[in-house]
């Protein structure tokens, strides 16, 4: 199987073609113009990850929500599951930037942390 990927490692945006065998293993990578492209294409085909930035509801804060992010990349396929989990959460003000809002979200080993302060009202 062949997969076409646009590399996002730098602004060049190389079009990369990855050949995969029936077990989903990478056979060859072509079209990249540097090593970073090769690594990006391999990860993107075998275990694509994304960092997630969103908001969590706050009770009693100056705003209704506080921004947060995944402290590390999470599997791309689990992004929407994580969003649903975050949508269920509500934290109490005050929130301090860096506070862990959800620990080890859906067993990914990644924490959801606050990316701003939300003082109490």
């Amino acid at each position: 199987m062949q997969k076409n990927i646009i590399c996002v490692s730098c602004p060049m945006g190389c079009g990369i073609t990855v050949e995969l065998n029936d077990n989903g293993e990478v056979v060859s990578v072509s079209g990249n113009t540097c090593k970073r492209g090769d690594a990006y294409a391999r990860t993107e085909c075998t275990n694509p990850v994304r960092s997630l930035a969103t908001t969590v509801k706050v009770d009693g804060g100056i705003h209704n929500v506080v921004p947060c992010k995944s402290a590390g990349p999470i599997p791309k396929a689990r992004m929407m599951d994580c969003m649903n989990e975050i949508a269920k959460a509500e934290v109490k003000a005050p929130v301090i930037l860096g506070d862990i809002l959800i620990e080890n979200i859906l067993g990914t080993g990644i924490n959801i942390v606050a990316t701003n302060h939300c003082p109490a009202k």
């Binding site: 921004p67 947060c68 990316t115």
Partner: peptide
């Protein structure tokens, strides 16, 4: 609130806030 800020200045990928 998305990330991608500060890669040049801090050498880290931060959110806007």
């Amino acid at each position: 609130i998305h990330t991608g800020f500060g890669l040049h200045y801090f050498g880290e990928e931060l959110s806007g806030p």
